[in-house]
Write a protein that binds this DNA or RNA. Structure first.
Lengths: 117, 117
DNA sequence: TCCATTAGGTACCTAGGGGAAACTGGCTGT
DNA sequence: ACAGCCAGTTTCCCCTAGGTACCTAATGGA
């Protein structure tokens, strides 16, 4: 009956969880654009996220191998984050997304206006 | 100081909200793969989602112009959902994602094992 | 006669993902 | 003497996305 379950319905589930959880996209994009950054600087550039959540996300990205963390027990402490090769390999994904948005977001907006009005 | 705010940090925010909200990916994928489907059938093929939530998602996708809904006030009622051209244009996005996953998910998993152990 | 069917709508409830704020630590500048 | 600075951690708290359960309509079949 061609029903291979939810896995077949969403074969890209894992990568979606990985890359498109809240805040992970701006983190990855900023690190990709601006290179190695320390915590406060990354925090400032993203904006809106709290330190607690940013820490959590970064830990998770580190665990997933998308980001590296270098900690220096100086005073004041220093932590630097950098995107890995693996993280960098997401470039085409983001590029495809950006391209789609540039080309089609207008259609979405006008569809919404049509639906609402 | 090259700080254009959160917008610069996440220029693809709109499309991410649009396409990667919970359940929208399997909905779009299933409709893309299997063509026009009525509500129950779509519900069955996705699995795990409740009727209430599925309805909400479909309404939203309809509003965004990614899906069309054809309702027939018969008894029992019939509603058929179909992906639009606009929805279909997301194909390359999903393909890029699937390709990345196929090539790199293994690295992610081994990074996790390394981190945990 | 009575139930299943379809496409939802509605009311209620819960878990947990985040947000806000306060705290740690030692050095450095005023 | 005292207030920052950095990189978090911890505690508390709230909101809401999503789940459960129950309701409708007219018909066809057992």
């Amino acid at each position: 009956m061609s029903d291979d379950g939810p896995i077949a319905a969403c074969p890209i589930g894992p990568v979606v969880d990985l890359v498109f959880s809240r805040w992970t996209t701006p983190i990855l994009l900023t690190l990709h654009r601006d290179g190695r950054l320390r915590f406060v600087e990354l925090h400032r550039r993203i904006g809106g996220v709290t330190a607690k959540v940013l820490t959590e996300r970064l830990r998770r990205l580190e665990r997933d191998g998308l980001v590296t963390r270098s900690y220096f027990a100086e005073v004041p402490p220093r932590a630097e984050y950098e995107i890995t090769e693996l993280g960098r390999s997401l470039g085409p994904v983001f590029a495809t997304l950006a391209a789609w948005q540039a080309e089609h977001l207008g259609e979405v907006e006008s569809a919404r206006r049509g639906f609402d009005g």
